[in-house]
Amino acid sequence: MFSIGDFARLGRVSVRMLRHYDALGLLRPARVDQATGYRYYEAGQLSRLNRLLALKDLGLSLHEVGQILEEKVGLDELRGMLRLRQAELEAQVADDTARLARVEARLRMIETEGVMPADVVIKSVPAIRLAELSDTAESYESSKIGPVVQALYADLTKRLGEAGLVITGPAVAHYEPVPEGVRVHAGAPVNMEPGKSYDFDVVDLPAIEQAATIIHHGPMDDVSSTYGQLARWMEDNGHRSSGVAREVYLKYGDGDPATWVTELQEAVTRPA
């Protein structure tokens, strides 16, 4: 047998907690010395302690835990309950992590309000032919756009490899509003044989006579702050958007996301 101190150490709980479980009738000592009142436990009781703690971690009250323990829940049933709770907690953590990222991105946008925009360059953008795949995102939110773009490029890269084609320049994404949300177009320039059919679209993006461009550094999760800077610069300098926007991934997808570089291009006109 083990003293309450040794049993607490082996079970990774406190002595105070074991006394509490004893008082509630959840885990009685195997023996109590009538002369000293010392509690003693058997090694086999670690199994009940582990079940008690596992059920408690599921979010059950101690009263509910006691009822389940008295029903002598089986190992398979307990394992199933824990797996389900594990999946729920993982989903909750993922949701909270994504929410935290959105809050941080919005905070960075707020902190850059009133700050002079980074260098914006007005330039012409040549026409370009792209191999392209498209899909629809729910909205322009980064959390909605990002997974769609990433899946499209993964699929496009696979198809280009199977076709024996090599990407010859930075990938280009562009968007269009549709009733269901946003149509996402993920493209990459490649050397394609004229007239040959492929399992992806071949599109020709027209040249842009005047584009207001700005460089975004880091992951696209917080690209909203850079778009905000571009919008303020356009307004301050009398430029209007013509509704054509592209993202050129100069360095993206490899290495530390903090080192990624994306050029944002917004077609603009100046008022007469």
Score class of each variant (00 low, 15 high):
95 D>G: 09
46 L>I: 01
39 R>V: 00
95 D>Y: 05
88 E>A: 15
62 L>H: 02
56 K>Q: 09
44 G>A: 12
55 L>A: 07
62 L>T: 11
99 R>P: 04
79 R>T: 11
71 E>Q: 15
98 A>V: 03
58 L>M: 13
95 D>R: 14
77 E>K: 14
58 L>F: 01
51 R>E: 08
103 V>N: 00
72 K>G: 08
75 L>F: 06
61 S>Y: 06
42 E>T: 02
51 R>I: 01
74 G>Y: 06
108 R>G: 09
78 L>H: 09
102 R>S: 13
82 L>D: 09
69 L>W: 02
101 A>Q: 10
60 L>I: 09
50 N>D: 13
40 Y>M: 06
45 Q>I: 00
106 R>M: 14
48 R>G: 02
73 V>R: 14
50 N>A: 10
54 A>P: 11
67 Q>C: 03
55 L>M: 12
57 D>E: 10
44 G>E: 15
42 E>Y: 05
47 S>P: 00
52 L>T: 07
70 E>R: 15
100 L>C: 02
108 R>C: 04
58 L>E: 10
104 E>L: 11
37 G>L: 03
90 E>F: 06
70 E>I: 02
48 R>E: 08
97 T>D: 09
99 R>A: 13
92 Q>N: 11
90 E>S: 13
108 R>P: 01
50 N>I: 00
53 L>V: 15
83 R>A: 11
39 R>F: 01
100 L>I: 06
55 L>S: 04
44 G>L: 03
74 G>T: 13
93 V>G: 02
47 S>Y: 05
69 L>F: 07
40 Y>A: 06
52 L>W: 02
107 L>F: 07
107 L>R: 12
88 E>R: 14
41 Y>S: 03
101 A>Y: 03
68 I>F: 01
100 L>H: 05
100 L>D: 04
85 R>M: 01
49 L>M: 07
43 A>C: 00
74 G>K: 15
50 N>C: 05
48 R>C: 01
71 E>P: 02
92 Q>H: 09
110 I>N: 06
94 A>S: 11
81 M>C: 08
76 D>N: 14
79 R>I: 04
84 L>M: 13
66 G>A: 08
73 V>D: 05
46 L>H: 13
55 L>P: 08
73 V>L: 09
62 L>F: 09
83 R>E: 14
54 A>V: 03
54 A>Q: 11
68 I>L: 15
101 A>E: 10
54 A>F: 01
63 H>F: 01
109 M>V: 13
66 G>W: 03
